[in-house]
């Protein structure tokens, strides 16, 4: 045996070295190469995320907060964050006064639950429209021209009102006619959560700009708004937002 070992000594050493090399490749180099490939993939993802965050930060820094607040208040005066029934009443009364007719009776058809707006269930109509409704009935009295003006101008004012149905009766004894309108005002609570930091914030699209302009061009008949916007951040942000 000793003689055999002595005879093949160099051969055995070379063989062992080769086995170690093969084992090194199989158990060392190949897993490490795979790990590096994986890390490279993660690096690519990290780079994309970093670029996304940079882009988002740059976009947010380019925005003027006061302009944004004004734009949001404009949008909120069209579709507020709560039912804001006083603004519905004020708007209808102002529109009636502007049209030269008078409001004889006004009634909110469904006051809804006394709960936060986001806690209430949406009706099928609301789900179909994609926004919550305050249905109400209003009886208007006035001349034919005045009523025509009221009905014609109702869709052109802020807050946005929708005429579902209406019924006009024309008494023969007097020039004053009355109309009963079933209408809807719109509202929708604020979103309760912000996206994660990595979530992209896109600028307003052309279509959104057009809609915003359309809203801004609607006649505002009341100054009242129930919008309460968050105040500007004054406290120092956490160094690590991922820390608990």
């Amino acid at each position: 045996m000793k003689k055999l070992l002595q005879t093949y000594e160099h051969l055995i050493i070379s063989g062992v070295i080769l086995i170690i090399c093969v084992a090194g490749f199989v158990f060392g180099i190949i897993p490490s190469a795979l790990k590096i490939a994986d890390e490279l993939g993660q690096l690519s993802t990290l780079t994309q995320e970093r670029d996304g965050l940079k882009q988002k930060l740059s976009y947010l820094q380019s925005l003027d907060e006061s302009t944004l607040r004004d734009q949001l208040l404009t949008a909120l005066s069209a579709v507020p964050a709560d039912k804001s029934i006083p603004t519905v009443f004020n708007t209808v009364e102002s529109l009636a006064a502007q049209s030269g007719v008078s409001v004889d009776k006004m009634q909110v058809s469904a006051g809804g639950y006394i709960a936060t707006a986001s806690a209430t269930k949406q009706t099928p109509v609301e789900r179909q429209l994609g926004t919550r409704l305050v249905p109400f009935t209003v009886t208007i009295v006035g001349t034919f021209t005045g009523i025509e003006q009221f009905i014609s101008e109702a869709p052109t004012i802020r807050r946005i009102l929708r005429i579902r149905t209406f019924a006009i009766s024309f008494p023969k004894t007097t020039n004053t006619i009355s109309v009963v309108l079933n209408m809807d005002a719109f509202y929708e609570p604020f979103p309760t959560t912000l996206g994660v930091a990595a979530e992209a914030v896109t600028p307003l699209t052309d279509a959104e700009q057009v809609t915003l302009e359309k809203i801004a061009n609607l006649t505002l008949l009341t100054d009242q708004t129930s919008a309460i916007l968050p105040s500007p951040v004054t406290e120092k942000a956490k160094d690590n937002p991922f820390a608990p």
Binding site: L72, G130, P191, L194, L212
Partner: peptide, 14 residues
């Protein structure tokens, strides 16, 4: 960010 998200949502609703 909160305002721009709310604004976009509100524009869609309006």
């Amino acid at each position: 960010e909160g305002i721009i998200i709310s604004l976009k949502q509100r524009i869609v609703l309006a």
